[in-house]
Design a protein around this nucleic acid. Sequence first.
DNA 1: ATCTGCAAATTGGCTTGACCAAATGACGTG
DNA 2: CACGTCATTTGGTCAAGCCAATTTGCAGAT
Lengths: 223, 223
Amino acid sequence: MTDTRRLYQQTADRVRQLIAKGDYQAGTRLPAERELAQQLGVSRPSLREALIALEIDGTIEIRMGSGIYVLNTAKPAGNGRSLGESPSELMQARAVIESAIIVQAAASITQETLATLRATLDAMADDIANARKPIEQDRAFHLIIAESTGNTLFAEIVENLFDERHSPLSAGIRGHFETADSWTAALNEHYAILAALEARDPLAAQAAMHTHLTASGRRWLEN
Amino acid sequence: MTDTRRLYQQTADRVRQLIAKGDYQAGTRLPAERELAQQLGVSRPSLREALIALEIDGTIEIRMGSGIYVLNTAKPAGNGRSLGESPSELMQARAVIESAIIVQAAASITQETLATLRATLDAMADDIANARKPIEQDRAFHLIIAESTGNTLFAEIVENLFDERHSPLSAGIRGHFETADSWTAALNEHYAILAALEARDPLAAQAAMHTHLTASGRRWLEN
DNA sequence: ATCTGCAAATTGGCTTGACCAAATGACGTG
DNA sequence: CACGTCATTTGGTCAAGCCAATTTGCAGAT
């Protein structure tokens, strides 16, 4: 199958491969344009188009009169974020970050969102009463608060941190945290957070969130 | 003030302006390369380089043998906050989260780490003096602070958010942020952050970090 | 009148060659 | 050894031309 893409795209990929293969380490210089073009079998304008693409995506840096330099080669894709080491680290991170986020949320949260949060907690209470694990409600509660800021990055971060607890790594420890008493305590802390939001009190919400996640981490570890 | 950026960047901006001004609506065709080049007073290869930059950032679509078509004119309508990942969202997220993290860092940071931070800023000043972009130093500064908390999750989050700015999505906007004045302002803000850390004043550090990232976002946008 | 098909015109894709400008490095001078 | 000068290296840009994909228009057939 012949590559039908534009030449500059094919050429940019070939240069990326040269860098990935280790022929040119980060910080080092690539061959001069004329030489590199000949080496790759393309004209200089076509190579220049490829270099512009690579410059835009941050692979290289072009310095006039000096040369073409390889930039930070290691940049894992934004998706496969492997977050998390220990449970205590994870819960500390959630406590600090979600406390900061809820301050933003408290300022602008709508009545509609508050109603959704209350419904989520009521569903959580129902789950607990019926001996079901209210993990989805727990997740939704934290996520809705982050989303209410209007900043999708907050939601993404909270989501990643939450889901980290249910990764294979954490799975072994899980199971202790699932007593009815633990969930009831968590539920009450959630209601306290909601109350602070309904009062539109950012500092109270921040404190309530911090208390909840710190206590949650302690429950997770102590059993 | 003469624009010293590469011609393709200037040209790309001029074409963006033509589109933004409404001369060419979404879905319509731009003039042919030869004609557009003459109209803008640049050579065809230079215009082609600009078009590749615009193609990468999704402003236009180039169809071989057919023409150059304007893509999504879609502008975020938000009254200050735009939906979807945007520079303003990114910098807001960094301001909130890194401000929260530095509070943790200020409590336990060591003299050794403070020395490393100072060395990083000195290297940054050197880069600026030599007209080089101190992106690596900027990145290191923020990362070292996050790492000094001892919680690897903080470091990972800060790293991911920082690198987000250099993703292909944001790349089209980059280049404005590269004046010596901007970097000098950023450097001074960094020194202010360091001073607060050296004083072991968590609240001052928090304020300085928030100020820095807010101002940085403004510089990035206003260009 | 409409449809079909092919050829010319249009338009992007790519190359060659050349010259300019910035950065670098070697060399000679103090 | 320090410093300034100048040739070399390297990226920046332009000009002209040919090739390939697409579109357009017109002639011929239905």
